[in-house]
């Protein structure tokens, strides 16, 4: 069970649909931030332009930090999808 706060900015980032296909999945489960972000930054260029990377993470910081990284780095945060075992699949589309 993940505990999350009821923040106004949160709702749009949490999509109810099943996660779409990703070109690359980065397993950062059990890793603390900033490690999941570092893994994402190191591997985003391994997928073709406009393809999607899924970051699997269960550090609560990743839920905020992956979308924040996308904003800072001008990539697109597609959505964050809760995993059955806890944590999220956070989908990022490579923009450049």
């Amino acid at each position: 069970m993940t505990t999350r706060r009821r923040d106004a900015g949160e709702a749009p980032r949490q999509e109810p649909a099943a996660p779409p296909e990703a070109a690359l999945t980065i397993d950062a489960l059990g890793r603390k931030c900033p490690i999941p972000i570092i893994m994402l930054a190191q591997q985003i260029n391994d997928v073709p332009m406009n393809a999607t990377v899924a970051v699997l993470a269960d550090d609560p910081a990743a839920f905020t930090d992956v979308p924040a990284w996308c904003r800072l780095k001008s990539h697109h945060h597609v959505g964050s999808y809760e995993l059955p075992q806890g944590g999220w699949a956070i989908h990022v589309r490579r923009n450049y």
Partner: peptide
């Protein structure tokens, strides 16, 4: 940042703002 908090959660302030917490 969460690693500096006893709760291991990032600050609820930074989370609510949607800015980098690490």
């Amino acid at each position: 940042s969460s690693c500096t908090a006893s709760t291991l959660r990032p600050s609820h302030v930074l989370e609510a703002m949607g800015v980098l917490t690490h």
